[in-house]
Write a protein that binds this DNA or RNA. Sequence first.
DNA 1: CGTTTAATTGACATTATTCAACCCGGGTGG
DNA 2: CCACCCGGGTTGAATAATGTCAATTAAACG
Lengths: 245, 245
Amino acid sequence: MYRTDSPIDKAAELLRRKMTALNGLADVLVRDVKALARDRVEISANRPIVKENERRSQLYLVESGWVFRSRGLASGRRQIVNYALPGDILCADSLLFKASSFDLTARTAVSVIQIEAPQGPELFERHPGLAAAIAWTMGQEDSILAERVVSLGRRDSLEKLSHALCELEARLSAIGLMRGKTIELPLNQEDFADILGISVIHVNRTFRRLSEEKIAEYRKGAIDLLDRGRLAEISGFDPAYLHLG
Amino acid sequence: MYRTDSPIDKAAELLRRKMTALNGLADVLVRDVKALARDRVEISANRPIVKENERRSQLYLVESGWVFRSRGLASGRRQIVNYALPGDILCADSLLFKASSFDLTARTAVSVIQIEAPQGPELFERHPGLAAAIAWTMGQEDSILAERVVSLGRRDSLEKLSHALCELEARLSAIGLMRGKTIELPLNQEDFADILGISVIHVNRTFRRLSEEKIAEYRKGAIDLLDRGRLAEISGFDPAYLHLG
DNA sequence: CGTTTAATTGACATTATTCAACCCGGGTGG
DNA sequence: CCACCCGGGTTGAATAATGTCAATTAAACG
């Protein structure tokens, strides 16, 4: 077990725990990560982590805080594509592609561990553990986004919201961030709107419906899940796509 | 150059061409692919390639035909998450995860080349080229899905359709499948509905709008792009996310 | 030809958006 | 201590977008 009180160890442990499927590689990964880890960087809330179209050759391993991956449209609309939590890797794509066309912004104060990774061939030939982590991360992201596409395309607002709440609960409890039936999160209703692809006002009405039926209760900074069974039932939630073991 | 008339070479060449960013690895990749390539498999139209939740340790490299990655919901609704074209890799995730919760179905007659890939550690330690291809494929898919999320969440039907047409044009011309201004495709309006997350009837209305404004014309089996500039303008299309060089 | 599948059209219902107010709690400055 | 402001949050009414249902047309095929 790679457990001490160092922040790098904690974040690396979260990462390792996610990658149980790659049994033989999990340890190699942790070794790679530790060898390549550089500074810890603190980003204050609501600051961009990477501006769109910026090229870099580093990865970031999130240690604490919430990060949004989003796109702002010309019309002023915004879509949050995904959110990253402690143990998640950011900018994995920057090692493979010239540019990313999405913004990464810190929703809360965030601290990340910079990992100096070689690009291209060297990455795959010399650091199989890290390469596996990157592939795994992208695969998981892929799977989450595919589920997001289903939600946005074919579920109504009640189903969308219910599904999002189930996902939040699953992802947070996988990293030990759930306290009982309450999700603590830094998202306001506008953030939910931009995740679910609906208007703020409709988010509000949809939360009210959930609240009227005693299924979930929105408060500032937290959501109480009163009936997780109903939430999963409404949205057809099946946690398999998160690949959390 | 790896060009002969063998189908494996043609598909591998398409794959290699996509991965220009990984300069040093492209050749390693082709070697890996050729070494691991097994049978060619033909799937007839409208047959499942993989049923949901089936575990395998093979990859498929598409040689010809159109493949849908989709999810059917309990209510009978369907969402097409993405489509794969010649040169694309299928089932990359099956090497990393226990199961995939999406269906792969052949929309046309499809032929794929089976690639026998080791799972887990061995993949990354012994076949860096293939590992890179898998990571790259997942990264590209990831990027496409992120763009899909934006479309589904924050664009109206006209923008969605325009964006989809731009994407189709870009992806098809990257593999040499565009003839002038006409997209030849096996998609009917119901397929478009399930890609765009709107109803068939609305797809019809939206095509009519494009046609009235002389922007694009739907015919069975083909779409004529009369004004690509307008299409890109309407949808804010920027091909960068496809990473096609 | 009849049959089938897909496309098209119109009338209507539903869902979600927009706009405009109002509320409420937590600062902040007088 | 109070008045004010500000960022959410909440609510209702009007409007726009999209979905559903039902019927019709068109093309494709044996």
